[in-house]
Simulated scan of single mutants.
Amino acid sequence: MKKAHAAANKRKRILPGFGLSLGVTLVYVSAIVVIPLSMVFIWTASLGAEGIWKVFTDARVLKSLQLTVTTSFAAALINAGFGVLIAWVLARYTFHGKKILDALIDLPFALPTAVAGIALTTLYSPNGWIGQFLHIKVAYTPIGIILALIFIGIPFVIRTVQPVIEGLQQEVEEAAAILGATRRQTFFHVLLPALFPAVMTGFSLAFARALGEYGSVVFIAGNIPFKTEITPLMIMSKLEQYDYHGAAAIACLMLLLSFFILLLIHGIQWYVERKKQVYVR
């Protein structure tokens, strides 16, 4: 009797259609994410241990991977700083042209990345409209790669942080000011702890997006081996040579490294959240 009663209560707690919804979800995620990713590992495993090690230790591949990770991290870090500033302006101030600026933020989402790459190369090449006035070379250098990655990653930070800023109560800032806190103290001790999870999320999204970017980078990078050659270009080169196993191996290495870095970032975010909860208690 008790078992029947417990089973009835359990059925009541589950939303109607849960079984069907869960089944559709698992099938969809498997078809779109799990199966394609598993094929990358299957193709890589077909090379054997010696072949995988040869691809993983190739100097050109390692140099491209180092360049991809460092430029992606630098671009995401810059976006995290300026993204918070832009999100603050859009959330807290009213000015003429605000809607236009707000719409421009989403432009990198809609603009083909190849078009962005061509435009940036035209502007920042040594003879470009902007590049000719600069004392440093931007196009065909890691600086140009970072610039392209900033362009495609900035919306992720702004759109993640902006709703959180809009949800912050200004009374908290006023209370901090009444208690004698300076604006800097209010930002770092009152606002930043509330914004930190959203900033980390935006940073992670921008970083992940930059790791796999190809279209906007391939033009402005110059693709010089051991200097400005990114890992996605290495994968495309392998595919053009019909070396599908080698391309899968490079993609697998990049996937594992990206997963580890993102896991580390989320671990830091979880640790900060836990410390904050302990402090509040």
Results as ranks from 00 to 15, higher is better:
185 Q>L: 02
184 R>P: 14
228 T>S: 09
216 S>T: 10
218 V>Q: 06
215 G>C: 12
202 G>I: 08
190 V>D: 05
224 I>F: 02
184 R>Q: 09
227 K>I: 11
222 G>N: 14
197 P>L: 11
189 H>D: 12
221 A>M: 00
199 V>Y: 07
192 L>K: 03
196 F>I: 15
207 F>Y: 14
214 Y>L: 00
192 L>F: 10
208 A>I: 08
200 M>I: 08
195 L>A: 01
229 E>F: 12
210 A>N: 14
213 E>H: 15
189 H>M: 01
209 R>W: 14
228 T>H: 01
210 A>E: 10
213 E>D: 07
229 E>S: 14
228 T>G: 01
197 P>V: 06
186 T>N: 07
184 R>N: 11
204 S>K: 07
221 A>L: 10
221 A>C: 03
186 T>I: 03
206 A>E: 14
185 Q>C: 11
211 L>W: 04
211 L>R: 01
196 F>E: 08
223 N>V: 02
187 F>N: 05
202 G>Y: 03
227 K>W: 06
213 E>G: 07
203 F>I: 13
229 E>P: 05
198 A>F: 07
222 G>D: 06
218 V>F: 12
212 G>W: 07
197 P>I: 00
202 G>M: 12
204 S>I: 04
222 G>S: 08
203 F>Q: 10
213 E>T: 03
194 A>Q: 14
184 R>S: 15
223 N>W: 03
223 N>C: 01
193 P>L: 03
214 Y>K: 00
211 L>N: 13
225 P>K: 11
192 L>H: 02
186 T>C: 11
229 E>Y: 07
192 L>A: 05
216 S>A: 12
210 A>S: 15
214 Y>A: 00
206 A>F: 15
210 A>R: 10
186 T>Y: 03
190 V>Q: 08
188 F>A: 02
201 T>C: 14
206 A>W: 15
214 Y>T: 00
220 I>Y: 13
207 F>G: 04
214 Y>E: 00
201 T>G: 15
226 F>R: 11
